[in-house]
Design a protein around this nucleic acid. Structure first.
Lengths: 222, 222
DNA sequence: GCAAATTAATGATTTATTCAAG
DNA sequence: CTTGAATAAATCATTAATTTGC
């Protein structure tokens, strides 16, 4: 069951804390870069609205007593089931992986997501995580194999791995690992606002087309 | 001179060369549990469009060619530089940190971002990263201190010291660190498409309504 | 005094670990 | 157990201070 995309019941941004309004005194120490610039003006910022992180320590708290209430875990459901990939989705992802894709950037993720969306509910983060996990687990599986079975191949038997070969110019990278030069792609992403009132959408233009998928997240702990 | 607050002309992260076609020869084997389901359908997926990393060689190529041209860095700024926080922004962030905020979730990040946006250009990811980095670096600083100066911990000032005390119910956590039980909050985020090139910078004044800022990212590389 | 070279900070990514759902 | 999700640690990369040579 994946009931993602729930309305996001943000109902507890109401509890504003008492005072505490960022006054001065916070600009000490600037190790090497006293950038200075026009100070003040900062004071108009009220923290109240921010200090409402999550409430719900969740289990796993400090072992020294302090167990949480009997209401151990009751939530998690509101929209929080995790992605359950379909066979088609997995197939595509693996194909992409075999073709050398390792860390897709935002554009790619977005495209992949929209494609995979045809086969089942999915979000960008799922795609992102899938690649992260798959990569990491392939790697450790490989390591375990090379260590456990072949008994310390000191000369680093290249386990072959991947060995992609399509012509993705300069994009494959890390086919050998073990000490890859640590290339970097670049992934772009951004947070998105999730609540309307705070920022009136004055222009009723409504989203152009790109559907920035919202991601609810149950406010409190995970 | 910090010319923050520049309009951000972001007009040159135009990806070129969409070529690169990852052709066939990649659909063998079905690694894991052919859970059946209609397989074919998958083949309608064209990878081509995904394997388009990004290009944008950028400098950084070879160390010998240090400083390639007279116009060494004329290009970096337009839209692709990294966030350069203003004093006000730092002040606010540090305040929030001292108040116990460690891993803001998407909602919080969004609000913080919009607030900090008053003092200079900023994106949600900047806020996120700031907390990540700040947290990590405070931690290591602390560790280094405790290890290096194990005697007379009554140093000048505990710097960090967090010691939050407002009543953020069950939220503070990890004020001590060193071996935290690995708490988990929950952060939500999502990718967004960044297709439309040069998101119209037509209205230079248009802030107010959230403008999901796109994030170009200089491709390739790094 | 300034601009190139050096260096300290720190923003941005990637990798490694860990937790928990199914 | 498998693996999606999330965080922390490690690293890379860039910027701004500081230093240095003129």
């Amino acid at each position: 069951m994946k009931v993602h995309q729930l309305p996001l019941p943000r109902a507890f941004w109401e509890q504003h804390e008492p005072s505490l309004t960022l006054d001065g005194g916070c600009k000490h120490l600037r190790p090497l870069a006293p950038k200075l610039a026009s100070p003040d003006t900062v004071s108009s910022f009220d923290i109240k609205s921010f200090i409402r992180p999550e409430s719900r320590p969740r289990k796993l708290g400090s072992p020294d007593g302090k167990k949480d209430s009997p209401q151990a875990q009751v939530e998690t459901h509101p929209g929080g089931t995790r992605w359950n990939p379909t066979q088609e989705q997995i197939g595509i992802l693996e194909m992409l992986y075999r073709d050398g894709m390792r860390t897709p950037n935002a554009q790619q993720i977005e495209q992949i997501t929209s494609q995979l969306g045809k086969y089942g509910k999915i979000e960008g983060k799922n795609v992102f995580y899938w690649f992260q996990n798959h990569k990491a687990r392939e790697r450790q599986k490989q390591k375990r194999n090379s260590l456990g079975l072949t008994h310390s191949p000191r000369n680093s038997t290249p386990v072959t791995t991947i060995s992609i070969s399509l012509d993705t110019r300069g994009e494959v990278m890390e086919r050998n690992e073990e000490n890859s030069p640590y290339k970097r792609k670049c992934r772009s992403w951004s947070f998105e606002s999730l609540e309307e009132e705070s920022c009136r959408s004055s222009s009723p233009k409504e989203d152009e087309h790109r559907t920035l998928e919202l991601f609810p997240l149950h406010p409190e702990g995970r």
